[in-house]
Design a protein around this nucleic acid. Structure first.
Length: 553
RNA sequence: GGCCCCAUGGUCAAUCGGUUAAGACGGAACCCUCUCAAGGUUCAAUGACAGGUUCGACUCCUGUUGGGGUCACCA
């Protein structure tokens, strides 16, 4: 008769550490009452997903706001799907958003007392716990092949029973230890399964920090906890790691709700206190009238890198995501005229339990606000960084004459109602193109949008007059009066009142008159304040542009 | 299919049994205005359905419907 003790010893002879030593090695954290210990625990299988940024923002904020700890753990147990270097990408991208862990896995080494923070480096810890579980008869080696499992599922489908490896269907759970050892020694591949003594006819309850009480069928499945490659499955790693890392608030996607009973079952078996759970809703997208999760394959906005390439300031995305997480944040920003997330009273309870549709318009709105509120130097720095990465022509312009760019970016900035021209840095290039002579020349070559019905003679005479008589270096009122006077000579109304009273008497309104000048100077019928634009371009280049346009007629 | 989660305007949503059912984005109109970006004012637009409980239900309960998720040696 082989005892469980002996089985455990034969299975894991190299493991000498016990649960008490682990408890001692990872003592309870010394934190104030109510402080959350949270974590972000991605697998290194790709780039940062927008939903992951959302979850990590919540984890980070919950920890920070409560005086707790936020750490980063790398869940690299799925060796098949691991993508080289994505661990570094994940951490760098997060850092770009200001989400830097207090402790955890970093590419150049662990930081913190509760590591290792990379699951592949924690094999001994998992095995130590499993060894203990085997001794207690709560885990066992299992020899079912994928084919065996398929066969079981088929039978269950036919009998319309719950699928899964449980109860009588858990074929190997009651094998004798002699049989187990014999098979192992014969070289039969094995995994370790948890021995559940739950009952799916019973319910388990737990309190979700977002949704409140959730009641689910108890777990009775003997889930795999150690794969044949010697690494743990998520279920087991979550229980062990978050116990020993002393995580007290698990933030994870709502897709984990159905497997929570498994985790609770294991916490129970181990005699550990389960953490609090906050199941975060997924960010959705509308497709054919139905909602679905943002998909990395189908939706460019599912990858955080997309927003960076578009040139959204990280802060804009963060502000938007925060407004989804706590919808009162938006009103708070308006009431406090501030986007300072650190000052906002964040609440986990206020997170909506329904997944929000990703709203591009709202992101743009927030981003315009964020950019408009940005000090010039900061905005310039961000534009420069963006251009260096994604817009070489703009980068060249910035290099050539940084002050000129600053002057342009400064238009309508720092006043009570600042201009809100840019939602993202990629908006900058097209909007400021006309300030550059090469670009201006291209615009002219493509044809100027003068109103139809104006004769070439008229345009030429008008612009010639402007060229001769438009003042430079005056204040705006003086300049505009001069424009009106010039316009009047060519049949434009000198005031909008005049024009409104008697439109047939004029070539056009004051607006039409200003439009003529605007088109000639900037090549388009829209621009920021013309007087300001003229001042930035400067007298010489303005006159040259007028000459250029006059030469066309 | 079983189990679970979710359900207020196009979108994000407030309301913790009693309101003319907030606010924001987006939309429309008007004002301001040299155009645009803004800004100001105004408007349109919401409780999925059916039963209960209650003096009273958007709010609590049940069911229906719809949407989402989950049932792996992936997380």
């Amino acid at each position: 008769m082989i005892s469980n003790e002996e089985l455990a010893e034969r299975l894991f002879p190299e493991i000498h550490i016990g649960l008490e030593e682990l408890e001692a090695r990872y003592p309870a954290r010394n934190l104030p009452e109510g402080a959350y210990v949270t974590r972000f625990a991605p697998s290194p299988t790709g780039f940062l997903h927008t939903g992951s940024l959302f979850t990590s923002l919540i984890s980070y904020t919950a920890a920070k706001r409560s005086g707790g700890v936020y750490f980063f753990r790398l869940e690299d147990t799925d060796t098949k799907r691991t993508i080289q270097g994505s661990d570094r990408d994940l951490i760098e991208q997060l850092a770009h958003f200001g989400i830097v862990a207090d402790e955890g896995y970093f590419p150049d080494g662990d930081k913190g007392e509760y590591g290792p923070y990379r699951q592949s480096a924690r094999a001994d810890i998992y095995k130590a716990v499993i060894k203990e579980l085997i001794k207690r008869g709560r885990a066992y080696p299992d020899f079912a092949t994928p084919e065996d499992l398929d066969a079981i599922r088929k039978i269950q489908e036919e009998k319309k029973e719950l699928p899964g490896y449980y109860g009588v269907y858990a074929r190997d759970r009651n094998l004798s230890n002699e049989e187990r050892l014999a098979r192992i020694e014969a070289g039969t591949p094995w995994v370790i399964r948890f021995y559940s003594n739950g009952d799916h006819n019973r319910k388990v309850k737990f309190t979700d920090a977002i949704r409140g009480e959730i009641e689910l069928q108890d777990n009775d499945t003997d889930v795999v906890i150690l794969k044949s490659d010697g690494l743990p499955t998520y279920h087991f790693a979550h229980v062990v790691d978050d116990h020993f890392m002393r995580t007290n608030l698990i933030t994870r996607g709502e897709e984990w709700i159905p497997s929570t009973p498994i985790h609770l079952d294991m916490f129970r078996a181990l005699g550990w206190k389960p953490p609090k759970y906050a199941h975060i809703p997924s960010i959705m997208k509308l497709e054919n009238g139905n909602r679905r999760k943002l998909s990395k394959r189908k939706d460019p906005e599912a990858a955080v890198s997309y927003f960076l390439e578009q040139g959204y300031p990280p802060e804009s995305l963060l502000v938007y995501l925060m407004s989804i997480a706590n919808s009162n944040f938006e009103e708070w920003t308006i009431a406090h005229k501030s986007f300072d997330r650190d000052a906002f009273p964040f609440s986990i309870k206020k997170i909506s339990s329904e997944g929000a549709l990703f709203d591009q318009d709202k992101l743009s709105y927030f981003s315009k606000e964020v950019i408009a509120a940005m000090p010039l130097e900061e905005e310039f720095g961000a534009v420069k960084e963006y251009a260096g990465l994604f817009d070489a022509p703009l980068a060249a312009k910035i290099n050539e004459d940084p002050d000129y760019i600053k002057t342009i970016l400064n238009i309508g900035k720092g006043i009570k109602n600042p201009r809100k021209d840019y939602a993202k840095w990629s908006d900058v290039s097209p909007l400021i193109a006309f300030f550059f002579d090469e670009e201006y020349e291209k615009i002219v070559a493509n044809g100027l949008p003068f109103k139809e019905g104006l004769t070439p003679e008229f345009i030429r005479d008008f612009l010639d007059d402007v060229r001769q008589n438009m003042p430079f270096g005056t204040d705006e009122a003086t300049w505009f009066d001069a424009i009106k006077t010039i316009g009047a000579r060519h049949g434009y109304a000198a005031s909008n009142g005049d024009y409104k009273r008697n439109p047939e008497a004029y070539v056009g309104s004051v607006s039409d008159c200003a439009e003529m000048v605007r088109i000639a100077i900037v090549g388009r019928n829209q621009s920021p304040n013309l007087h300001e634009v003229l001042g930035i371009i400067g007298k010489d280049r303005v006159l040259a542009r007028l000459d250029r346009v006059i030469s066309l007629f």
